[in-house]
Design a protein around this nucleic acid. Structure first.
Length: 260
DNA sequence: ATGGTAGGAAGCCTA
């Protein structure tokens, strides 16, 4: 039995619940990683999602951020919050185990404007994520770290690289830390299966970005070596951006074969 | 041309 894992920054679970329920029925993922739910735990629409056949784990926050994980199969050993800074109150990370695979839903800080404390917060958060990935690797876990990384891995992932050169999503410090995480031995699912292909997962609400295809590819699924060995397919559900009142992000997903 | 739009909160902040 394969395991299909999708990540989607829904930009308000309240506004996007209808699209989410429709898309669950259309694509039938096993695990869904949500970001920017923008509600506290007790305001998350768990009943509607449970009715669609999913268990629900939430790490919510009022107004900003907030992540969740939906899974048809049981989720075990749930951890809320990225380790490494007890003073960090932003709800951006949730981890759980499904069928022996450790899975994280993460919302990496945007980091703009770069001349404010938002940028060092982003870099510090990435160092903590790197350390968490290293810990999981030491445990020889099969794991998938998925979410809105707010990182443009390479110039081919952005419609106008020159315009974004100084942006926190592109800056050498940001890309350097992203590479540090990858070079621990992780595989970015979509790019591994689609070398040289241009595709985006986000289009800004402003300036007619969707109509002009001014997009960014910032939603990623990073696989540990044992997960990468099982990688069977990956995709980006681009058509979701064209629906009525869409999120600015679309789902990205990967499919793992059963263990050998 | 330094704008524009969306979401949530409350009369601005984040993206």
């Amino acid at each position: 039995m394969t395991l299909r894992i999708a990540t989607w920054n829904v930009n308000s679970i309240k506004v996007r619940l209808g699209h989410l329920i429709d898309w669950l029925g259309e694509t039938n993922p096993d695990v869904v990683l949500l970001q920017e739910i923008k509600v506290e735990d007790d305001r998350f629409p768990a009943l509607e999602i449970e009715d669609a056949g999913y268990n629900v784990e939430v790490h919510g926050q009022k107004t900003y951020n907030g992540v969740a994980m939906l899974s048809k199969r049981p989720m075990e050993d749930v951890v809320r919050g990225l380790p490494g800074d007890d003073a960090d109150v932003q709800a951006r990370y949730l981890e759980a185990t499904v069928s022996g695979v450790r899975i994280a839903s993460l919302y990496l800080p945007n980091g703009n404007p770069v001349d404010t404390d938002k940028f060092p917060y982003k870099l510090g958060w990435m160092e903590r994520l790197r350390d968490r990935a290293a810990d999981l690797l030491r445990g020889e876990e099969t794991f998938v770290l998925g979410g809105d990384y707010n990182i443009l891995p390479a110039d081919e992932d952005v419609y106008d690289p020159e315009a974004f050169a100084g942006d926190a999503l592109c800056r050498p410090e940001s890309r350097g830390l992203y590479r540090e995480i990858l070079y621990l031995g992780l595989t970015e699912a979509w790019r591994a299966l689609n070398p040289g292909v241009i595709a985006y997962s986000y289009w800004d609400f402003q300036r007619g970005a969707w109509q002009r295809n001014h997009g960014l590819r910032i939603d990623h699924l990073l696989l540990s070596p044992l997960a990468a060995d099982r990688l069977a397919d990956a995709g980006i559900d681009r058509d979701m951006r064209g629906r009525t009142r869409p999120s600015d992000h679309v789902p990205a997903w990967c499919e793992l074969d059963e263990p050998a």
